[in-house]
């Protein structure tokens, strides 16, 4: 379970929404020897089934999305500069001055700005919308750029995984940590039969989870996800949502979902009983695949177990390794509990 090399591999792999082939390949290689059956659906979701010691009373699906946020090349200027748009919710300010890699061949590029020397005082602080930014691959012309890039190529924040002082700092922690937790669970002997979904296109509107939930048709679902920790200097306590180092995050509701109250209570009880650190989300904010899953067919009882992560949807997030193990333990306990209930 403590195999952080796998987590690094998952985080360093490039795969934005609609472009999950590479990350899917890695996950498939990891899980295939350990599952009873595995399927790739029409949208690219991985749907795996693993037999446990027995069939549970409740048919459970565990889900984690495998896509990350990034950008897509929309147009190439005559001077060889690439225009782009965001895939998923990215504030333009975190795109400024960043290194990116583009397309299948991972061509390096930079998102540069007008030199600060040539700006007036107002411009120096003024927001720059993504439509005014461009990516420079140092092509001398449009023709040269076209040798390396095509419109529609995906753009990724550059891989930057680091593990220092109990903290992991990387792009794509959202949601490769969820994938990591599910892979670890699959590699163990399970007490009950369970379904596992590695979903696509979460960042553009929970699209993969919606069809996967329909296909699996479970009674219950657990979503494993990274969630916003805003516990930074200058943010008041009640607005911090959750804290890194504070343990697994459980919410009673977010912007899309009112979670099943029984499962919510199970999670808190199990955490207490097994000495797993948990915290309750202190702000109704954000959302995850639960939003699509709990409304599938005639409704699916759903709960999310989340990992607090600072700087979500930027070039570098930060999580505490202790929280990761807390999430892993809680998901393990909660999945058995739900199956047997």
């Amino acid at each position: 379970m403590n195999n952080l090399t796998l987590l690094q591999k998952l985080c360093d792999t490039y795969g934005i929404s609609g472009d999950e082939a590479c990350i899917r390949e890695i996950i498939l290689n990891e899980i295939t020897p350990f599952v009873t059956s595995v399927n790739i659906d029409n949208l690219g979701n991985i749907i795996a089934f693993k037999k446990g010691k027995k069939k549970g009373k409740t048919k459970l699906m565990l889900s984690a999305h495998m896509d990350e946020v990034g950008f897509i090349v929309t147009y190439i200027n005559k001077d060889g500069m690439l225009k782009f748009e965001a895939v998923g919710g990215i504030n333009s300010d975190v795109a400024c001055g960043k290194r990116v890699v583009i397309g299948k061949n991972k061509i390096p590029g930079v998102i540069g700005l007008k030199p600060v020397h040539l700006l007036n005082a107002e411009e120096r602080q003024k927001n720059i919308p993504i439509k005014d930014l461009y990516i420079d691959i140092a092509a001398a012309s449009k023709d040269e750029a076209l040798k390396y890039i095509s419109p529609g190529d995906c753009v990724y924040f550059r891989a930057n995984y680091k593990f220092e002082n109990n903290m992991i700092k990387s792009k794509a922690i959202d949601n490769r940590v969820g994938c990591f937790v599910l892979i670890n669970l699959i590699k163990q002997d399970l007490p009950f039969d369970m379904y596992f979904v590695f979903s696509v296109q979460e960042e553009i509107g929970l699209r993969g989870a919606k069809v996967a939930a329909y296909e699996v048709n479970p009674d219950a679902a657990i979503v494993v996800e990274a969630t916003t920790a805003a516990d930074i200097k200058g943010t008041s306590d009640e607005k911090q949502v959750c804290k890194i180092g504070g343990g697994a995050v459980i919410a009673f509701m977010d912007k899309n979902t009112i979670y099943d109250r029984n499962y919510y209570n199970f999670a808190l009880e199990l955490a207490k009983k097994n000495d797993i650190k948990v915290q309750i989300k202190s702000l109704v904010s954000g959302g995850n695949d639960s939003g699509a899953i709990h409304m599938s067919r005639s409704g699916i009882k759903t709960i999310a177990v989340s990992l607090p992560c600072r700087y979500l949807h930027s070039a570098c997030g930060m999580i505490c390794i202790d929280d990761l193990w807390a999430v892993q333990k809680l998901v393990q306990q909660l999945s058995s509990k739900i199956c047997s209930a």
């Binding site: 919710g89 990215i90 916003t228 805003a230 600072r310 979500l312 949807h313 930027s314």
Partner: peptide, 8 residues
């Protein structure tokens, strides 16, 4: 530090 889009 930066505030993610979810909270802005």
């Amino acid at each position: 530090c930066t505030t993610p889009p979810h909270l802005i």
